[in-house]
């Protein structure tokens, strides 16, 4: 086993070693993959986030299949229509459980005790997800999508970003939908989870009458 004492570590200039040591300190495996949680985590409210992640996995899997076969397939064939529907309903479940997760974390004030970055990343994920859903609606290749595109063109021009995002440009909207936004959402969700593992699940808010509750209120 390599001696971990920095004073006798003869490889102190090695960046790989420095990164590995830092990761071992910040993210030991039993924190990254704990098999037990504090007692207060035993509530169904804590399940919403992981259900949203399960929905996201379905979205990505069905989306990959849709990309591979293309718009012709998902409108014309029965299997294509089914996979298209899987993708659509997985998106609905993703938003439902993401919003339930947001309600739970908001009322628990889960940004407490150094967890503000986790909360902020969650808000950013939500905003990017809205954009992803919007570009997905534009990519349907049907009259609905055409109507949305024409109306959104007015909206983006009014917001001043019409020069950068052309909702009538299918290639741009589709590319943003299948590549740029999914990369961002997946990367931010992974970071969100790692931050939760680093900090742990926030304790419930103490009742006002208790000693630690008075301390909490004075913060």
């Amino acid at each position: 086993m390599t001696d971990r004492n920095p004073a006798v570590d003869t490889e102190s200039g090695n960046w790989t070693l420095a990164i590995r040591r830092w990761l071992e300190r910040q993210l030991p495996l039993d924190s990254l993959l704990p098999h037990r949680m504090p007692y207060y985590v035993g509530s169904w409210v804590y399940v919403f986030g992981v259900v949203a992640i399960a929905a996201l996995i379905w979205i990505v899997a069905s989306g990959v299949v849709l990309v591979f076969f293309g718009p012709q397939w998902w409108h014309v064939s029965a299997v294509g229509h089914f996979v298209n529907s899987l993708h659509f309903w997985a998106v609905q479940l993703f938003f439902i459980f993401m919003v339930l997760h947001l309600w739970g974390q908001y009322f628990m004030a889960s940004w407490r005790d150094g967890r503000a970055p986790t909360w902020i990343i969650g808000v950013v994920i939500f905003a990017i997800s809205v954009g992803t859903a919007f570009t997905g609606y534009l990519s349907q290749q049907n009259f609905d999508a055409q109507w949305i595109a024409v109306n959104a063109k007015d909206a983006t021009n009014a917001a001043g970003i019409g020069a950068f995002f052309n909702v009538l440009n299918f290639g741009q909207m589709y590319g943003i939908h299948v590549m740029i936004f999914p990369i961002l959402v997946i990367a931010l969700v992974a970071l969100h989870i790692v931050l939760v593992r680093i900090r742990g699940v926030v304790k419930p808010i103490e009742p006002a009458g208790s000693a630690s509750g008075a301390e909490e209120a004075s913060k």
């Binding site: 924190s31 098999h35 007692y39 035993g42 409210v45 309600w103 739970g104 742990g200 699940v201």
Partner: peptide, 28 residues
């Protein structure tokens, strides 16, 4: 969604038997 949220707050959640030990992850 509101109904699901309220039910989730009050529905019983299966807990482990007391006395089981092991890494519990970080918490405050």
């Amino acid at each position: 969604m509101t109904v699901v949220f309220v039910v989730a707050l009050f529905a019983p959640f299966p807990h482990d038997e007391p006395g089981e030990k092991g890494p519990g992850g970080r918490h405050d």
